[in-house]
Amino acid sequence: MIWQFDLILLTLVVIFALISLRVKDLMGASIVFGAYSFLMCLIWAGMGAVDVAFTEAAVGAGVSTVFMIATIYNTGRMIKPRPQDMSFKLLMMLVVVITGAFLLTAVNDFPEWGDPYSPVNDHVAAYYLTHSMSDTAVPNVVTSVLADYRSFDTMFETAVVFVALIGIYGIIRRRRKQDDSDSDTDALPPYDPSESLIIRQASRMMVPFMQIFALYVVAHGHHSPGGGFQGGVILGASLILYSMSYNLPTLFKKMTEKWIILLSAIGVLIFSGVGVICMMLGSNFLDYSVLSQILPATDSVMARSHAMLIVEIGVAFTVMCAMVGIYTSLASNGRFDKGL
């Protein structure tokens, strides 16, 4: 990587973070935050963490920003200045500065940046790189670590997304024709983006391509950057785009609320189900190698590889549904009839 480029990016990131916190318009702040995330994922890509960069581009710069916009759409967007208690801010500043200084004291103690033989790179990580092929036959080590060596983390990560979806539904969802008293027609902007012909047509064309790409990302995660998360987020984003360019009811015609919930649960079920099957076949939870007993024409190594694909599909289901579900909840303010 080019260090000058890196230097500029790192500086820019700080500036963008500050701007997004300074801007009085919340919509603007969200957009700046999106830009911040995007710069961040450039940095990560520069450091060789393509999978992370990929995810951040989809999640941080994409979906997160859309979540914020959906929230702001239903509420107020301008911050009205108010006289503030500066002593509190100063106190917090002090806390933060002390914490930061404390964190910085350790920087000199870190191994040299980029050292391939630092403990982080040498100990466990090196094992993964050297054994991934022989253990799992998956060349993308990120995928093999994600979906096999540390698949237990990943399963719970999927569960986290599922939890968020269920939790948000529980908090925000209202039955229709029930208390519409609190702020029904709240802050609807005069401009309705779904009426724009250009946007409609453009997204109509884009959505299928996005979805095909997403499927590719899921399926080809063994050999190239990508996997269940990235694919799931892109799938979700395509649906979000669809609903943004038309409106929510159009989306719900294709994919109802019920399916959002059920599919997200099924995603987790696929993942944990694979684990349970492994247990039933007499090995430890998530030990894919025993799946060779039931998968046709596989040895224990290939069984791992195949099981990873199954698991990634489960992840993709859950993530996609969670992204769409969270977005629709936020955008429609829990009523699931109209909204952004």
Partner: peptide, 24 residues
Amino acid sequence: NPLTQILMLTAIVVGVATLGVALT
């Protein structure tokens, strides 16, 4: 290094989930 990457993949997803709840 693949390990830090997958750890952070998890962290990103956890982060967006938390963000969603907080925004709600």
